[in-house]
Design a protein around this nucleic acid. Sequence first.
DNA 1: ACAAAAGTGTTTTAACTACACCCATGG
DNA 2: CCATGGGTGTAGTTAAAACACTTTTGT
Lengths: 255, 255
Amino acid sequence: MYADAANVSERQLQPPALAISTVIFALRPSATSGRPTLWLPLVRRIRQPHLGKWALPGGPLAQVESLQDAASRNLRETTGLVPNYLEQLYAFGGLDRAATQRLVSIVYWALVQPDEAALTRESENVKWFRADRLEALAFDHNSIVDYALWRLRSKVEYGSIAYHFLGETFTLAQVREVYEAVLDRHLDPANFRRQLRATPDITPTDDYLQGVRHRPPRLYRYTGAAGTLGAQAQPAQAQPAQAASTSVSTSASTD
Amino acid sequence: MYADAANVSERQLQPPALAISTVIFALRPSATSGRPTLWLPLVRRIRQPHLGKWALPGGPLAQVESLQDAASRNLRETTGLVPNYLEQLYAFGGLDRAATQRLVSIVYWALVQPDEAALTRESENVKWFRADRLEALAFDHNSIVDYALWRLRSKVEYGSIAYHFLGETFTLAQVREVYEAVLDRHLDPANFRRQLRATPDITPTDDYLQGVRHRPPRLYRYTGAAGTLGAQAQPAQAQPAQAASTSVSTSASTD
DNA sequence: ACAAAAGTGTTTTAACTACACCCATGG
DNA sequence: CCATGGGTGTAGTTAAAACACTTTTGT
């Protein structure tokens, strides 16, 4: 997928290659306990370097699309997934990231809902893995996933991100399961409930989840800004919510 | 400096240009009140586009340096500054950032100490500006600065970043002045003192600042991780400080 | 009736705020 | 001695943690 350049002198002359990759998280039931846990889809490398190893979905940046669009596109192309949360993670540009050439990767991270995730076109070369039990991946992708996990945990603790793992409506217990899966610790149902009910972004509906073998829990809906695609604390067009924002002209850096 | 390409079809063929820019903050006394306020150095554009306008210091990415090294280098080259904090801000890659070609900018932000800042080689084309009173800058640099300011404020509220504005030793009042300048609000000296004294990263020395016309305040020293260059919540080699130090890949949930 | 999870109430604890007050120094 | 900021004490407020308890359903 990246030009298989060769010796160092050639390498010196090429401009750095620019790629977009994405870390995609979804909650799926654990094989053993059935409780929701974090999973992510990986693709198998079908060429050198790292042939045969698993890697983050990614690809080159097309000329006519924004970075976010690029992430969204090749995520869709490689896994068939459409995330409902997508945010830039970090730009990785270490010298030794790829053996053959200088490679700069702008990495995004995404959340998808379980029902979306279930539709993934799994194959010999596309498979879901538990985020906490990864084998050795291609390139520096293990540390990228680690960083994405850290970022996910931070955002969850902040609040107003966990809902993107869930569907249109959900019970408070489901939200709590998301928190528990991501933070990997138990939370008091009573206190958690009070906290969420104090959040203005979570609106109770008049519907109740039926078919459970106990008292039917009320369903809620997330009514915070932008149900889709990272409107979080991002720059570019979308200025951080808490800061005052003015215009955004055009762009480019120095000369 | 990037090929001044022309029509769309040519543009389609070029790979995206990659540049590094940096938002540099320092505290300098306000011209009017004398109290410390946020300033940043800008460079005047000496070619099209946006000729004559002020812009963030930046330049291309050399083949043999990491992204962070690149930021550090061209920051030194253009302003003579050596930051003691440097962290990646965001990768900007909108389609309309530059008129002539597709441009992706990886932007860093930096903090420098006042005495360092005072050594800046100011000239006709390099000047300091108050961060809260910027004119219209080149490209999308106004919004980039806004985003950097937001990020700075977030980090300050979190703690353990403000010291990078100061020298080796400092009084608690100086730290408070940093907070007040960045957050732009008054803080209670008594409570602020207690908070900082509760922070393990701030070690009291046996020295006192002399020459003030009141009781000499004690000097403190920051002894947190890495007095220099963004060891903050960064990925790659340096894992976040707040998170458990062991690798995330070992966590695992209850099942 | 019983299990199981929804949902409520109450006590304790910790953290932060506001503000009164004393201390040490230069003038 | 007085003005100024350094430094300490303390009561009031607020948020979160811990946990006992009541409610509503399916079986």
